[in-house]
Design a protein around this nucleic acid. Structure first.
Lengths: 146, 146
DNA sequence: CAAGGTATGTCAGGATACTGACATGAGTCA
DNA sequence: TGACTCATGTCAGTATCCTGACATACCTTG
């Protein structure tokens, strides 16, 4: 109606939110049988790829606050999925690592999430995926600068 | 390290989450001075474009549950931003409409959000934007089916 | 007409994430 | 050295959103 307003359904921002919401819902669905939340999985996956990450670094990687990640890490540590040294080797940062149990737990989750990612990419050519990749990165950098 | 795991930083799913997170943060930043949350703004924008939407329809459009949208609508109605009839004209759905006050409130917010959207799109050609649009829609439909 | 299925609005309780705040450790700079 | 800035881990309180549940209203289908 008005040319002033953003046309929601055709706005890239809206579409981005919709896609992210759909992805999150799909991930929650496949992770629920494993009693694992998306943040939970993100934390484990990050640790598998970059062992020794600190609480704050994990928080940034999972897009939550370091307070939120801290309570998650405490639960994961209590249940034996990760380990943290009692004292910080340098500074205050406590390098976190997966235990064998954590690694086992991640395996199933990783397979489940991979199936979601494959479903999401189904119907897109490699060129389209590359274009989407580049577009998303451009959006991120544009939003962060300034 | 392992070929089994998804390489997070290069995964489209991760990038999607990162972009969505950055967009949400940018929107929250410009909406905070107006004492408006993203869901709050989404609700008003939806009503401006499609007057008469019901609570459940608004919830789907803003990607929250209808319970969440309901408490928001109650607050908006109490503060005079929207109106809902006391009785449903048909079924149980209560068609919601913006008041002049709601429309005024939306104007500033819409301008602020538009600036964020423009910033996000800066550095992308029209062709790249079109490609991103198509890619996101493809992901959404793929995730929903099956 | 009766019965099942679907969609809606709403209430209550609980889970999740956030903001605010504090103390501590490391680096910078005059 | 001392003051300053920044990043980190952690505690407490709050906000936000969700799941579960219920009653109601429409719409099929036999």
């Amino acid at each position: 109606m008005s040319q002033d307003g953003i046309d929601l359904p055709t706005s890239l921002g809206y579409l981005l939110k919709e896609a992210s919401s759909a992805l999150r819902a799909a991930m929650e669905e496949v992770l629920r049988p494993l009693d694992m939340s998306v943040t939970h999985y993100s934390c484990l996956e990050l640790l598998a790829q970059r062992p020794g990450l600190s609480n704050s670094e994990l928080a940034r990687g999972a897009f939550v606050t370091r307070q939120t990640m801290n309570v998650l890490l405490q639960a994961l540590e209590r249940d034996g999925y990760v380990t943290r040294p009692a004292a910080a080797p340098v500074g205050k940062a406590l390098p976190t690592r997966l235990t064998p149990r954590g690694r086992r737990s991640l395996e199933k989750a990783s397979a489940a999430v991979r199936s979601v990612e494959l479903k999401m990419l189904a119907g897109m050519t490699d060129a389209e995926q590359a274009a989407a990749f580049q577009a998303l990165q451009s959006m991120i950098t544009s939003l962060r600068t300034g």
